[in-house]
């Protein structure tokens, strides 16, 4: 790929999604954008870049961003963040919100919905403690295709085996064809999905007690990471929790958050929890 084409395409993707593509990632651009070029009746990425120079075609730019930001996800990814949710975060929040009996949870960059549905399944496992509670789980993603997939809640045989215990498959999914499984309505109704860009104003999304924003900051450059974390800080309740991915941190990025000692990936707002929190059960 020509340098000027790489620059044009990577700049476009960065402006729209925050995704930083270094020159070593040129292969990713090529493999993901070639199908987009084909769809628009072009033979190469050179043609694609040329078309963008000639005209800022909104549909084309939308398709390019979608293709570059679509990422694989799986149920109970890394497992620990969900054990943490069940044993530490949820009990802590149930105590803190005992009067209101209302919790709001955000799965940011929800991809095809596995993270939000995993949290919903944990809530279903804890149903006895959640009697009379209102639990809102909101999943957002930049990609329309991903949001639609998440809403449908239909997964391949491969997807339902990665990370998902078979007992949960039996309990929370219906087999709709030989190798397709759909999440059951009672779990699906616990989650609302919508399109949202982490780089833009979040709009009237409300405030959240728990935010899962995992494996998305790694794609951003430092100032963008700081901007996104700051925006998340603005919509979190003062005693809320933030979960980041295994390779992500707030340290040196945003001083509004501090890590919770002994709980890798878990953060709270800097003023909260001088004594820390304890796991229950």
């Amino acid at each position: 790929m020509k340098q000027e084409d790489f620059d044009l395409l990577s700049t476009l993707v960065r402006q729209r999604s925050g995704l930083v593509l270094t020159p070593e990632k040129a292969y990713l651009l090529e493999s993901r954008l070639f199908p987009v070029a084909r769809k628009h009746n072009m033979k190469s990425l050179e043609d694609l870049a040329q078309a963008l120079r000639a005209r800022r075609d909104e549909t084309l730019m939308f398709d390019i961003t979608e293709a570059m930001t679509t990422n694989e996800s799986f149920f109970f990814r890394d497992q620990k963040p969900f054990t943490l949710f069940q044993k530490t975060i949820l009990p802590q929040m149930l105590a803190a919100r005992a009067a209101k009996k209302h919790l709001r949870i955000w799965s940011a960059a929800a991809s095809s919905g596995q993270e939000a549905y995993s949290l919903a399944m944990v809530c279903a496992e804890e149903a006895a403690k959640l009697q009379g509670w209102k639990i809102d789980i909101i999943g957002t993603d930049l990609s329309r295709e991903m949001v639609n997939r998440a809403k449908a809640g239909i997964y391949s045989q491969f997807e339902v085996q990665r990370g998902l215990p078979v007992t949960y498959l039996v309990k929370y999914f219906t087999q709709i064809a030989g190798d397709k499984w759909q999440i059951k309505d009672n779990i699906r109704q616990m989650v609302q999905y919508r399109e949202a860009n982490l780089l833009a104003d979040f709009g009237p999304i409300g405030s959240f007690d728990i935010v899962y924003c995992r494996n998305v900051l790694i794609y951003f450059d430092l100032p963008t990471k700081g901007k996104v974390l700051n925006a998340i800080g603005n919509i979190m309740t003062p005693d809320g929790f933030l979960l980041l991915g295994g390779a992500e941190t707030v340290l040196g990025v945003c001083d509004r958050f501090k890590p919770m000692p002994g709980e890798h990936g878990l953060y709270c707002l800097s003023a909260a929890y001088p004594q820390g929190v304890k796991a229950v059960g």
Binding site: F74, Q79, F158, Q161, R162, G163, P165
Partner: peptide, 8 residues
């Protein structure tokens, strides 16, 4: 898939 099941 195998690693995931073993982990669980």
């Amino acid at each position: 898939i195998i690693r995931g099941k073993l982990e669980q």
